[in-house]
Write a protein that binds this DNA or RNA. Structure first.
Length: 227
DNA sequence: ATCCCGAGGG
DNA sequence: CCCTCTGGAT
């Protein structure tokens, strides 16, 4: 789809700094940080991970962590009981099934407790340089608005992932995900998208079909004059 | 109120 | 398909 690739090119120019915003120094750290990032800002995750990894630096250390201590550290990230279970479970699984190493394969990553397809693709794309398409809440929303895939497919994140994969070359998958996510966070918001400040509005079928963020619209008027 | 780069269970 | 798990920022 030419239109999709054109929009991606423009997003790439708009967000040259797009990338993973979680701090990590190893695949294990990225795996843990990504699990913790569910329904939480990356800033908050990055605030707890240094202390987390200072105390439990690897899977074997984390697998034998005290549940209460771990919960205490994870508390500010939200869902802390579920996240504690995930970290204890995935650390143990890494130790006894993968010799303490994080597998670089989607089918193996998703067998780890607390690791779904989205998390697995983030780890592949950013820790292993294996192209990974991340269909999270932002990507799903933008792909729907952009109409890059038919509505029937857009309902299912896995089908969406495969449909997008068919439009873009493998080498673009990881950065495409980052750029869509950045655009979703900065302009193409769920509730009031800043269509007036959108660099791909001219190719977007959803442009002008919904309410525009009044804050963004006002900012646009002051800097560029009214439309 | 609503949002934050979800996953697992029923 | 729905629901729940969770807390902090805006």
């Amino acid at each position: 789809m030419r239109r999709a690739r054109k929009m991606h090119r423009v997003l790439a120019e708009t967000y040259p700094e797009a990338g993973c915003e979680l701090d990590f120094t190893s695949p294990f750290e990225l795996l843990v940080a990504t699990v913790l990032s569910a329904q939480t800002t990356d800033r908050r995750v990055n605030a707890v991970t240094p202390g987390l990894f200072a105390t439990w630096p690897d899977p074997s250390a984390m697998a034998s962590a005290s549940r209460a201590e771990l919960e205490q550290v994870l508390r500010p990230t939200g869902f802390f009981r579920a996240k504690t279970d995930s970290l204890l479970g995935l650390s143990a699984a890494l130790v006894d099934r993968y010799d303490g190493q994080v597998p670089a394969r989607l089918d193996e990553l998703v067998t780890l407790p607390g690791v779904g397809r989205k998390t697995a693709n983030v780890v592949l794309g950013n820790a292993f340089d294996v192209p990974g398409l991340t269909v999270d809440t932002h990507v799903a929303r933008l792909v729907r608005r952009f109409e890059w895939v038919p509505p029937e497919i857009a309902k299912d994140p896995v089908k969406t992932e495969h449909a997008i994969a068919a439009i873009f070359p493998r080498r673009d998958w990881t950065m495409l995900s980052h750029r869509l996510i950045w655009h979703g966070r900065r302009r193409c918001h769920a509730k009031k998208p800043a269509c007036g400040a959108c660099p791909v509005a001219r190719w977007c079928p959803a442009f002008g079909t919904g309410p525009t963020d009044p804050v963004e619209a006002a900012a646009l008027v002051t800097t560029q004059g009214p439309a």
